[in-house]
């Protein structure tokens, strides 16, 4: 053995240091947040309106005062209102029998949505976070590096003033955002605005969407996207699909109970 071998031997043995097992769940959760931050930054590249304030995977936009219970649906501005533009238009609520959720038809959905704003109708998940309705909406992405991706799905809230507060943004980074199957699945998690449900979207005639959560099959609540009826936004009740729970095996079925293509059927974690 020569000097260089001694050095190499010493570096590989480090008598005063023994590596410890790292918590890979923590690593992957933090890596997932970092990845989403990058995606969000991609989505926000041409939009300074909302996503410029994205930090840490969760939105840090200061929320307005909590909206009084019972007034939220009537006082919400249109889904297409750009954040900060105010104009509190009144929107009616329409019940979707299959899921019981409320979809607020937009009176101001732009024909060509602004990047970063809501694209199409905003979906009320029927739950609240921090006193504000927990919402899902689509936003338009315009990223040259992702030529086949224009859709991002957002879990967020809306202030009494009508500002949309995105909490979690997800989108495809490989392939087409309109390919049949699941897209942008996101685990339930706790962010600054409170807990966000597991959510995602499906392209195809999905009449029923399920996952296996902590050993139980749980059916998603879902809503058809106003701009493309082949796109289904879905989410899971936080009591059934919990943050840090075991979630997997997403399945979509048509109205005859036949299983539909899976697509990118993997949940982002953290």
């Amino acid at each position: 053995m020569n000097d260089l071998d001694d050095l190499r031997d010493a570096m590989h043995s480090t008598p005063d240091f023994e590596p410890k097992p790292l918590d890979l769940a923590v690593v992957m959760a933090a890596g997932g947040r970092l990845r989403r931050r990058r995606r969000a930054a991609v989505g926000a590249a041409s939009s300074a309106a909302v996503l410029a304030l994205l930090v840490g995977g969760a939105q840090l936009i200061p929320a307005g005062p909590p909206q009084p219970a019972g007034l939220a649906a009537a006082a919400q501005p249109s889904a297409g209102d750009a954040p900060g533009t105010g104009s509190p238009a009144t929107a009616a609520s329409a019940a979707v029998p299959s899921t019981g959720l409320n979809i607020r038809p937009s009176t101001g959905v732009p024909a060509r949505p602004e990047p970063g704003g809501a694209w199409g109708e905003v979906v009320d998940t029927g739950s609240t976070a921090g006193g504000l309705d927990r919402l899902l909406w689509m936003q338009r992405l315009d990223e040259p590096r992702l030529p086949d991706v224009a859709l991002g799905i957002v879990a967020g809230r809306r202030t009494a003033e009508g500002r949309l507060i995105p909490d979690v943004v997800n989108n495809e980074v490989e392939g087409s955002d309109r390919a049949p199957g699941f897209h942008a699945l996101e685990m339930a998690m706790v962010v600054e605005g409170g807990a966000t449900p597991a959510f995602g979207y499906y392209v195809g005639a999905a009449a029923k969407i399920t996952v296996k959560a902590d050993g139980r099959t749980v059916r998603a609540r879902q809503a058809t996207w106003s701009e493309d009826r082949s796109v289904v936004l879905f989410w899971f009740d936080l009591k059934m699909v919990k943050p840090a729970g075991e979630v997997g095996r997403p399945r979509a079925y048509d109205r005859n109970g036949r299983e539909l293509p899976a697509g990118n059927a993997a949940f982002a974690v953290g």
Binding site: P19, L24, M28, A244, V247, A266, V269
Partner: peptide, 22 residues
């Protein structure tokens, strides 16, 4: 941890094999 994203299993394997060295 829930079902992992595509490739996560490979990452876990990679990290497990290399974290001590890193």
């Amino acid at each position: 941890m829930g079902l992992v994203r595509r490739g996560d299993e490979e990452f876990v394997e990679f990290a497990g094999a290399n974290s001590a060295r890193l």
